[in-house]
Computed example of a mutant assay.
Amino acid sequence: MNRTLIIAEAGVNHNGDINLAKKLIDVAAEAGADYVKFQTFKAAKLVSVEAKKADYQNKNTTNSTENQLQMLQKLELSEKQHYELMSYCCEKKIKFLSTAFDLDSLEFLKKLGLKLFKIPSGELTNLPYLERIAELAEEIIISTGMSNMEEIEETIAVLRGKTSAKISVLHCNTEYPTPFGDVNLLAMKTLKDHFGVSIGYSDHTVGIEVPIAAVALGAEIIEKHFTLDKTMEGPDHAASIEPHELTDMMRAIRNIESALGSSVKRPSESELHNIAIARKSIHLSRAKLSGSQIKEDDLEMLRPGDGISPMKFRNILGLKCKFDLPKGHKLSFNDLDK
């Protein structure tokens, strides 16, 4: 049984508050996630002053006059805060992860000791970024929101040209929240078949159904945004799940992993005792004398199933009874003779 890697995406849902960030770590650890992931960036190196906020960002923030740069500046984590959060993750026994959005942030995450690097959907076509992450990472996860197969193929080619690091690819849609009709979850399997990589799913839908379905379809990695409260102000809160939903998602995914089992079709240990109870055996529908021949209308199929299987029905027609046998008798081959 494969164990799905679960990344609880805190992202920028800390709203720039270190104490809120620690509460998010608490929630992720208590839910049993493998990683809690933040975002590392210097807003001035990520967006220009002309960059407008996305529609979902405008909808979920109250300041309609600020641009994307101004919004993101309030969501930066300092280097000191990164160290503090890493230490707190160690204390809570959950792995720390962060996505870098610029070259300087990549260098800083390497300085922090990160070996696993996550490429966000927006950087998938950023050649200098891809080349540097290939030089730094020992393992790479790529989100593929907004991309087509040719773009993903080009990205993977760049990475493989510079690194032998393991590459995993996450199917993703970057609309917050993603309409269910736009998820296209089956594309995840296309990625696996085409690129021969580990696959997963980064989810931005409302609720927990789609990531659970992704695991049933073979996702090895699930990434899901979470928050303390969906009604908080901030660009990503509304499309995130709350603590109880994260716990429910974790439980459901682990149950699905267990339920997937193997590809072998056979009775499970838990149901073996039901075979005799639920199946039938061949019984006599009337009393038979010793030496009389078994005919079709002498037989009926009744539970329990610990006698001669009805699948042997044709095999016993024409055989003779060795003894006088009463109506309702459960036949055995010891009762019969040629």
Rank of each mutant, 00 (worst) to 15 (best):
E107Y: 09
R251W: 03
D102K: 08
K115D: 10
N148I: 13
I141D: 03
T62Q: 15
R160G: 08
L299W: 12
G318P: 04
I119F: 00
L97S: 08
M1E: 11
R254D: 03
I167R: 01
I253R: 10
G328S: 05
T61N: 07
D26P: 03
R132M: 13
K111C: 06
I277Y: 11
L69Q: 13
A214P: 08
I253K: 14
S262K: 12
D26W: 02
E131C: 08
K74P: 06
S87L: 15
S98G: 06
R3N: 12
C172V: 11
K338T: 00
I7T: 00
Y83S: 03
M71A: 05
A259Y: 12
G305C: 00
M232Y: 14
N60F: 11
A134Q: 03
S98M: 09
D335M: 05
T247C: 10
M250W: 05
L112I: 07
K295N: 09
D203S: 15
C321E: 04
G181A: 10
E123N: 14
L109K: 00
K338H: 14
T174K: 09
D236N: 06
G328W: 01
Y176C: 05
N274R: 14
G328N: 06
G11S: 04
H14F: 01
I133G: 00
T205R: 05
A259S: 15
G207W: 07
K330S: 02
L289C: 09
E245Y: 00
S198H: 12
K80V: 00
K95M: 07
K92N: 04
N315P: 00
V158P: 12
N13W: 00
E220G: 14
S121D: 01
F96M: 07
A214M: 08
P179G: 06
E209M: 14
G307K: 01
L72Q: 06
S64P: 09
P267Q: 14
D17P: 06
F117K: 03
T205Q: 07
F226M: 07
G11F: 01
N148H: 11
K192E: 13
K265F: 10
L114A: 06
T62N: 15
T190N: 13
V47F: 01
V197S: 03
A10M: 00
L69R: 08
K53C: 07
A29K: 05
T190G: 11
K330W: 07
T61H: 02
K327R: 14
A214C: 08
K322N: 13
E123V: 07
N19W: 08
L336W: 03
T4F: 11
G196F: 11
K312Q: 13
K312L: 12
G11H: 01
Y201K: 04
K115P: 12
A216H: 12
D337S: 15
E154A: 09
I167L: 14
I18Q: 01
E269C: 12
V197N: 04
N19Y: 11
K52C: 08
A8M: 01
K322P: 07
V183C: 07
R3C: 11
A134F: 02
K322C: 13
D298F: 04
G161S: 10
L299M: 10
A44F: 11
A44R: 13
Q81H: 04
